[in-house]
Design a protein around this nucleic acid. Structure first.
Lengths: 108, 108, 108, 108
DNA sequence: ACCGTGGTTAGCTTTC
DNA sequence: GAAAGCTAACCACGGT
């Protein structure tokens, strides 16, 4: 952050009492007042999503394991998946290029 | 596998003809007979999961963006999240170490 | 570089003879003229450093082996070392976070 | 470790009293008596070596940076280095194979 | 002797 | 354009 003074924003509508906050053990939700609450909320949302992501990665590992148990070589599989992904991306990029061309010649 | 024999397991009951392969567009579902079908299935499961993962990553980015729009500094947020994660990991690892010690001294 | 033009820079002052190059077995040091020589030099520096790194890794392995020979459990050792490293990192990150906070509230 | 009771070895010459254990601040150098001291020593040796390794990695990064500053594309460089490494390994493996052949036919 | 696991590293993406 | 965080491939070790 070069000069950003705003990484802990003052709530603009900061006129409410912050009284009724309960225990909340270890999260400093009032150091910044309502902003602290918002921050906490954002962080928890992210952590929740990252948990889900981790679970998904776990699932993927399990599929690989199962495939391996069936006799497939995971390294080969990874290579295939990677290649397919490249195909898709390449196709996508080609399509974007096509769109560009079309718009360039007025074909909307 | 010494040198990648069997990374494409032959179905043991491999007596069908694979003759009718025509277009072969992108999914070689019969080159290896039934094994090919299984492989395809595995790969599609993985690709599906990776799609979900990508969506989740997108969501995370959006939350960061929203937070940023609210005035928070994402760098700070990331650092906080990273620290919280480290806390969790450290706790977990410490427990594992303790287990290790216990087993080492015969405390089952 | 948008699409890798110039990943093999022409020396701008390209007027010297490249004559006196000796044997140099397999490194094409004149395909790009003097640039080739520079590239070769960079690459060899890196390879040298990587050699040293590999040697160090070897040393580490040996220490583990010696410790194991003395009766210590390497898994435990690794965990301890990992925890200590986490400690250091956490401390460092906490300090960075503090800095971030300070700059946020204008405490230069 | 299944049944390894020896991950914290008793020093063979374990006849000293460990009585004076006092502070034990952060380095438990006497919880296991002399073994603790040995363990600490091993760990510090490893940490030292890892420090050196990290420094070396830093150096490598710097060389890449310098090369980049000179106009080279680091991605290309990495590829070259990787290829050269593969060459070396391949050659080494070929030589091992040759050794094998030689020993097989009694050419010691 | 092999497999599985965890750690490591390099490359990519995104940020500033 | 540089720096950092993230991700995914790689490798080596320990366990079975």
């Amino acid at each position: 952050m070069s000069d950003n003074v705003a990484n802990f924003p003052q709530s603009d509508t900061y006129d409410e009492a912050e009284g009724t906050r309960g225990a909340e053990s270890a999260t400093p939700s009032d150091v910044g007042g309502v902003a602290g609450a918002r921050l906490k909320s954002f962080i928890e949302r992210i952590e929740r999503l990252e948990q889900e992501k981790a679970a998904l990665m776990e699932d993927i590992k399990e599929v690989y394991a199962e495939a391996k148990g069936t006799g497939f070589d995971t390294k080969t599989m990874r290579k295939i998946i990677s290649l397919r992904k490249m195909d898709r991306e390449k196709r996508r990029e080609s399509e974007e290029l096509l769109e560009l061309y079309k718009s360039a010649i007025g074909m909307y």
